[in-house]
């Protein structure tokens, strides 16, 4: 039997080969990121040769046939929808995460885990269908009349169009989509807090909520913030679900009941005709570059913070 087992030299040779393969493979993710950015940017370049980046970013006119490419409506649309989504999602998600880590019995955790898993696993097009069938009518028929009647004098809540296809509908759908993510990250961060902090605070006579508010929340704030930023970057790039409920009108939105046209929706809706109009493809891939740059910035910053926080364990 011993005849078949490799000799030490063979094993060392095997080891060296494996080591080389690993180092080549481990460069793959970084190379991919650089390559994706560079490839998209090269396609964006022809547009930058004709217009200055600043003009593109603050231009509000989008008429590809006439050669007018203003990205501002799309950038604002993206930011509005994302902001509404994150604003709606953060409070309940933080509370849920606090509940899970500080109050819940093991049974509740066991029950909630698959629910969050399924919410995270549902495809975005399913969220889109739900949005079209449930959220859009709800926003259009229930929320919009109430808000315009009682709070219509606040510009943020005034309504200029009769349907529910709006920033608010997109925000609600986004909020549900990023919820499992936010809860999971916050829970992870809270789990790294040493038990002594809790015991110390409770031992001094603080209630659980006081412990959360004055000890855990303050100490975990960097991690929680990083989690929220990471959730925001997920929301920024969400395409299908938002595209289906947000109305897709290239305008500068003024209220949450206005339709908007986020960057991902712009790319997805127009890819079919982009080769037929000059510079149109450069403009659409430029939209992809903008999206990528925003998301990358959010991502790198929050991931660096989170890696540090989670390494405390």
């Amino acid at each position: 039997m011993g005849d078949f087992s490799p000799t030490l030299t063979q094993r060392q040779a095997q080891e060296r080969t494996a080591r080389r393969v690993v180092f080549v493979l481990s460069a793959l993710p970084l190379v991919l990121i650089i390559y994706i950015t560079a490839a998209l940017f090269t396609r964006f370049w022809p547009l930058l040769e004709q217009y200055s980046l600043w003009d593109l970013l603050i231009g509000t006119q989008w008429y590809p046939m006439q050669g007018k490419f203003g990205f501002l409506p799309f950038i604002t649309g993206t930011l509005w929808v994302t902001a509404v989504g994150v604003f709606l999602a953060v409070p309940p998600c933080l509370l849920t995460a606090f509940y899970l880590s500080e109050y819940a019995r093991p049974l509740t955790r066991v029950l909630l885990k698959p629910v969050l898993d399924v919410l995270a696993a549902l495809p975005s097009v399913i969220y889109g269908v739900w949005g079209v069938l449930a959220v859009v009518p709800f926003v259009g028929n229930q929320l919009r009349p109430v808000f315009s009647q009682y709070l219509g004098w606040i510009p943020l809540f005034s309504s200029h169009q009769p349907t529910g296809y709006s920033i608010l509908a997109g925000g609600i759908v986004l909020a549900v989509m990023i919820a499992p993510f936010l809860i999971a990250v916050t829970y992870e961060v809270l789990m790294t807090a040493p038990q002594d902090w809790r015991l110390g605070s409770l031992g001094l006579g603080a209630t659980r909520w006081q412990t959360i508010r004055y000890v855990l929340f303050r100490q975990s704030l960097p991690g929680i913030l990083a989690g929220v930023v990471l959730g925001t970057s997920r929301a920024l790039g969400e395409t299908m679900a938002v595209l289906m409920v947000v109305g897709n009108v290239p305008q500068m939105p003024r209220s949450i009941f206005d339709a908007a046209y986020p960057l991902p929706a712009l790319i997805a809706n127009n890819y079919g005709e982009m080769m037929s109009v000059p510079l149109y493809d450069a403009a659409l891939l430029g939209a992809a570059v903008l999206l990528l740059v925003i998301v990358l910035a959010f991502n790198v910053a929050s991931t660096l913070v989170l890696q540090r926080v989670l390494a405390r364990r």
Partner: peptide
């Protein structure tokens, strides 16, 4: 092989970043 080395952290960071790139950008790419 890489464990907790500096390079390993780079690899993990870039994996996390790749994970966060929106699917529409992958589509365009």
């Amino acid at each position: 092989y890489l464990g907790q080395s500096r390079w390993a952290n780079w690899v993990r960071l870039s994996l996390d970043v790749l994970w966060g790139i929106p699917s529409i950008v992958y589509g365009a790419f």
